[in-house]
Design a protein around this nucleic acid. Structure first.
Lengths: 198, 198
DNA sequence: TGCTACCGAATGAACATTCAATTAGAAGAT
DNA sequence: ATCTTCTAATTGAATGTTCATTCGGTAGCA
């Protein structure tokens, strides 16, 4: 059977999405396997057909979620457009993904701050490795950004967007297109290179 | 007995600090009360003398930690200095607190993304309510910052600093004073008002 | 006939919390 | 100083529950 991210195995996907929702509400250890099974309309034993343990379920859910985030970020990308425009598109997409997928946002934040992230540092989505990280590297190499540690760039951008999305969700505030582009502009202002003209 | 934040009740404090370390390593539900007791050199029952339940222990640990963060941020503050200088001081202090108190950083992140934060939204440190939030409000009212929702300002700043601190910790990278001030400058560039001269 | 997907009751470990009993310490009386 | 009394602090074994995981079995399908 196909145990890939893009799978049509409905039970496996049901388990993943149920876990996502439940972890958002109750946290990792706060969600029992029995409840995951119930919510996914699946027997408890079935979970262990697809995942070795609760721990690997969480790790695979992380990769699944990160993969979906990556795909969402790349939506509507066009390599022929100017770098800055593509950057804005990426950021807007990321922000929209967070507010349209609250549970993914909460899950990712929890995961990153959990022992799992430390225990499985190599586990990550391919899309990030092959597309998104290189896009930022390109921006750095070509002088679009300040000369800071490239590995610091991504967390900072992410930190800002996540903070904004969290706030937007918790306060039930609706941001207009305008507000979002102002937010992205803030990020751009923060990291753009002021010295040379790229 | 004095159940305040600044207490000399050593057992209570021992329980709090032990919980902080353990939650960093194993997460909320991943740390049993029995282990907290053992690490704090205290009997299991003693925890229930100071805290009603595991849940309230976590909430009170949040307030304790947030209080310490607040105090650290205000260190060396001088109201007579220019606003921008005070801002830089606050940010540098906050960043340094995170890297000097890893477990507090991890705990705060976990807490914010947990159901607790939603269930006890009113629980927060007084220092933030009386000193830190007003400081940012002042900056907004006096045109130092872009005109964005003031409640959005704090999460964005926090998001950036937290991201940088996380990175610094996970990669075992040492930032120089220089690097930190560049980081804070990035934040300042992002949120400062470009239109008028304050 | 064999293989995979799936089920769900059973198992045993781990857990949060309780409580009856013990100690420490303070305040008051002698 | 010493004894008395009262309260708060502390203990850790016992309790009842919840949980992750297992496993013997069923159903469909090649």
């Amino acid at each position: 059977m196909n145990i890939q991210l893009e799978d049509f195995c409905s039970k496996r996907t049901a388990i993943l999405t149920s876990t996502l929702e439940l972890v958002k509400e109750h946290g990792f250890h706060g969600t029992p396997m029995s409840q995951i099974a119930k919510t996914a309309n699946v027997a408890a034993g079935t979970i262990y057909h697809y995942f070795d343990s609760k721990e690997t379920l969480m790790v695979e859910l992380y990769m699944y979620t990160k993969h979906r985030l990556g795909k969402a970020m790349l939506a509507g990308d066009d390599e022929s457009r100017p770098y800055k425009e593509r950057f804005f598109q990426y950021m807007t997409n990321q922000y929209n993904f967070y507010i349209e997928n609250e549970s993914s946002l909460f899950f990712l934040e929890q995961y990153i701050n959990s022992p799992f992230a430390k225990n499985y540092p190599e586990k990550d989505s391919d899309i990030f490795k092959t597309d998104i990280i290189p896009f930022f590297d390109f921006g750095l190499e070509n002088g679009y950004f300040k000369k800071i540690d490239p590995r610091l760039m991504w967390p900072i951008i992410r930190g800002t967007l996540v903070a904004a999305a969290h706030f937007r969700i918790s306060q039930h505030v609706m941001y207009s297109e305008e507000d979002i582009s102002q937010l992205v502009k803030m990020i751009w202002d923060a990291i753009k290179n002021n010295n040379t003209t790229p």
